[in-house]
């Protein structure tokens, strides 16, 4: 089943074109990895999917993006972002308690009952594999957590609004190898219930966890296919060159 479908997407920042005629689709319950050198438009694409690019004044997007067959521009933007969660490159917990961080999303969408919030927060933290580490200090500030814990808290925060898709923008680039391993495991676990699109600079990471891989270069999609095919038998020589580390 196709979750996200992109057709002929062009994205401009002012007069600069960041994405050129991008078309591919993302299957539900899979992990799709976006790879490519810095500045190739991966993050731009990610931000277009939950319309975070709307916040950038000079940004202009043309083309068609559909979520479950419906154009994302016909959806209410806040509802779209509820359905399409996002985890950022740098962990960005709010300066409030761990509980309030996770409960912020559900509260935004109208859940007030203390008992329901408790349940949601616990489930989200369990899903993000953080419950065991923080269950005894939910009232403490989230800023006291380690970087890896903060990032998992941000994942829990995103999960608490029960999204359908999770966008992850280099979620492990600011983390040490152990935390990275935990987040990767988590992503694979989560892909049973969620559709995940992950931007990464780490080839091994893409190869380890993703089902599909899309290779970007200078704003264009060079190759899109199953991860196995892209890594073992790339159709395009540029893809091969990038994956084997000859440039980028």
């Amino acid at each position: 089943m196709i979750k996200f479908d992109m057709e002929n997407i062009d994205v401009f920042y002012g007069s600069e074109q960041a994405l050129k005629n991008v078309s591919f689709s993302v299957e539900a319950h899979e992990i799709t990895a976006l790879i490519g050198p810095s500045g190739c438009g991966k993050s731009t694409l990610l931000k277009s999917l939950n319309r975070m690019n709307d916040l950038v004044e000079s940004c202009r997007i043309t083309g068609k993006i559909t979520l479950d067959g419906e154009s994302i521009y016909n959806l209410d933007v806040n509802h779209l972002r509820k359905r399409v969660g996002m985890v950022f490159q740098k962990p960005n917990p709010f300066p409030m308690s761990i509980f309030d961080n996770v409960a912020f999303g559900p509260r935004t969408h109208g859940i007030k009952s203390k008992r329901r919030l408790n349940d949601i927060v616990e489930k989200a933290l369990r899903d993000a594999a953080l419950w065991g580490e923080v269950s005894d200090r939910l009232g403490k500030s989230a800023l006291g957590l380690s970087g890896g814990q903060q990032q998992r808290l941000c994942i829990a925060r995103a999960l608490a609004v029960e999204p359908e898709v999770l966008l992850m923008d280099e979620p492990t680039s600011a983390l040490d190898p152990i935390s990275t391993g935990k987040v990767e495991e988590l992503a694979m676990e989560l892909s049973k219930d969620y559709t995940i699109i992950i931007v990464t600079h780490n080839m091994q990471q893409a190869a380890r966890i993703s089902n599909k891989t899309t290779f970007f270069l200078l704003g264009e999609v060079i190759e899109h296919g199953t991860t196995e095919q892209v890594f073992s038998n790339p159709r395009n020589e540029k893809t091969e060159a990038y994956i084997t580390g000859r440039f980028g």
Partner: peptide
Amino acid sequence: VPDTYREGSFALGAGKLR
């Protein structure tokens, strides 16, 4: 106030007012 807080909030579907 860091922009990352704003992004975090918007990405959870919170509106401007909230």
